[in-house]
Design a protein around this nucleic acid. Structure first.
Lengths: 337, 337
DNA sequence: ACTCTTTTGGAGAGCGCTCTCCAAGGAGGT
DNA sequence: ACCTCCTTGGAGAGCGCTCTCCAAAAGAGT
């Protein structure tokens, strides 16, 4: 690679045609005489030509990349400890690669980084944004919206606004859990909720409560956790102290459920015989947990893929109106309930 | 955002100066009269100007992004199930963000995708590549090398070649495990290795064997696994069948160790009383496992951050020769051994 | 007072590509 | 045979930015 990287011009010279013709062959736009095409192809081969991305995107106004913005709760790089983000990433990558688009990963945890994200998009470093945020108060959706950046959210925005998103019917998930407890005859049921400034947590709780009420249990003790194993354990300890006769717990994600199960076992309770536990998400820890968790499945990978699909579609047709796609949860019965 | 996005030209007109001056203010190159600077800043503010990334990188030949290429064993999007890749990503992102560089995520699992990766880099869509690969036979390092792409690997290349990399002293890790078994007086020790076409697996095994031999145990039963929970479980079952009196197992990663512990418990063995288990990596599952795993810590995040640092340095000084940075493992004692 | 250096702003040439506009040639209709 | 329409290649104008080269102005030295 001592030589300068060859340009269209070089190929054109070698092939004895104009720059335009080479461009047409490379991009497959318009008809080019098959024989000429052949000549050009050879010239490309011979020179080892690769189109320059910057030059191309300068005129096409497209980069072929999208920003995958993760606005984690705690922020920092810890976010990847939660299998959730790994699953989102997997789903997004899986879809995008079929379209030759690549995600650039960005964490938005501070105001500074949020500004950077908006700048990044405004200067056209990526064609659009996929925003995975948990907090309802997140300001990024609004900022991106009025920077005119094509955006799709994972989870509905904090305040209603004209932006596309995919989401899960979290309330239905809560109902699924309640139905399970009813099905196995549990009557002293409590719940460990996620952070209540997160829509998803709120909805899971609401759905659960309402279904429990409909089943004849107007009051369900609630303890708030932080979506981590440790916070689940702490919540379970508090719950056990206040409500020792509990025989069923709905925990708002699998990580916390794992912490809860640990505490339960440590207190000599059998799971599910003494206390049944239903988790949420159906992520790796649910399967790894002993006993394996009965949990409400959130099809994160599919949802993430759909999110990417919605963005790509919007990119191709800027006139399209915002769309929302809501997924249905599903109860996965294993050993814990 | 009805208006066209403003360009340098627009700002220059508003400020009543030349394009060059605005550029100088924006980039802070050369001296510009403070008062003029002020005027320009106002004009920028007023027009809402943001530099166009494509145009800039067309002339600077820099994009401010690097490719984070994951060439997973099984490939596909499953790679993120393994906490390892999440940790790498976290470490990389964590370092890059301090330098205003963003990673674009690419999976290379098929030959087609490998070609795409090389193309991507050759057309200057990113300034360099961070390559995380497990398999020794991976062809990407060589391809990137002779495409002249600045590259840093996680783990040494399959064949020696002039490329930078970070790695762990896996043999030392194996020795650490052997020392632990010696320390707790285990005499009937076996090991579950990782896939043997992976350098790291080989080295862990070699280090372990040699240390065991030095401790007076010339032969250590080996079963090969695939770095997944299920493969660890299967391996443990085989081991138990062939070698029922085993009282210590060194497992080449935590995921497999978890599977092994499950099987051990299911067979009525107590861990660590009957069989001590030492894992490798010290990732989330090690902590979540019951009992929590004694394991050899691989500082993945630090290593990944270092990998990013080496790349950034190489980007700034293209004359620099390839570097390698080897990290030392560390034994983390928990309950399982 | 004059020349020599240093500082600072402007002009303009690209960076490599796409795409519109033209022109030339061939096909088809009358 | 002529005219029109369609197909296909070339010319060249940018896309928005950086950076080198100049020139003008300001400061320094004698």
């Amino acid at each position: 690679m001592i030589k300068e990287t060859p340009t269209l011009e070089d190929v054109a010279r070698v092939a004895g045609v104009s720059r335009a013709t080479v461009s047409r062959v490379v991009n497959g736009t318009r008809n080019v005489d098959p024989q000429l095409q052949e000549t050009v192809r050879n010239a490309i081969e011979q020179t080892g030509y690769t189109p320059n991305h910057a030059a191309r995107s300068l005129v096409t106004r497209r980069t072929g990349t999208v920003a995958l913005v993760i606005s984690g709760a705690g922020g920092g790089s810890d976010v990847f400890v939660d299998p959730f983000f790994g699953r989102v990433t997997a789903g997004v990558v899986d879809f995008l690669r079929t379209r030759g688009v690549h995600p650039v990963l960005m964490l938005a945890d501070t105001d500074r980084t949020r500004v950077e994200v908006v700048e990044f998009l405004r200067q056209g470093s990526a064609d659009g944004a996929l925003l995975v945020t948990t907090h309802a108060a997140e300001s990024l959706p609004a900022r991106l919206l009025d920077a005119g950046v094509p955006t799709v959210l994972y989870a509905r925005p904090g305040r209603p606004m004209p932006v596309s998103y995919v989401d899960l019917d979290h309330q239905a998930g809560g109902r699924l859990a309640a139905a399970r407890f009813a099905g196995i005859g549990r009557t002293r049921v409590a719940t460990i909720a996620g952070p209540l400034d997160v829509h998803a947590s709120q909805d899971r709780l609401t759905g659960f409560r309402e279904a429990m009420a409909r089943n004849g249990f107007p009051y369900v003790p609630v303890v708030e956790g932080g979506f981590t194993v440790a916070s689940g354990a702490a919540a379970m300890r508090r719950l056990l102290a206040e409500y020792p006769e509990v025989d069923g717990v709905f925990v708002a994600n699998d990580l916390m459920a794992q912490g809860a199960v640990d505490v339960l076992l440590a207190h000599g309770k059998r799971v599910p015989e003494d206390v049944a536990v239903v988790g949420f998400d159906d992520s790796a820890p649910a399967l790894a947990c002993r006993p394996p968790l009965t949990t409400v499945r959130q099809p994160v990978e599919h949802m993430a893929a759909k999110m990417a699909e919605v963005l790509i579609t919007a990119l191709d047709d800027p006139e399209e109106r915002p769309r929302s796609v809501i997924f249905e949860p599903e109860l996965v019965v294993r050993a814990s309930a």
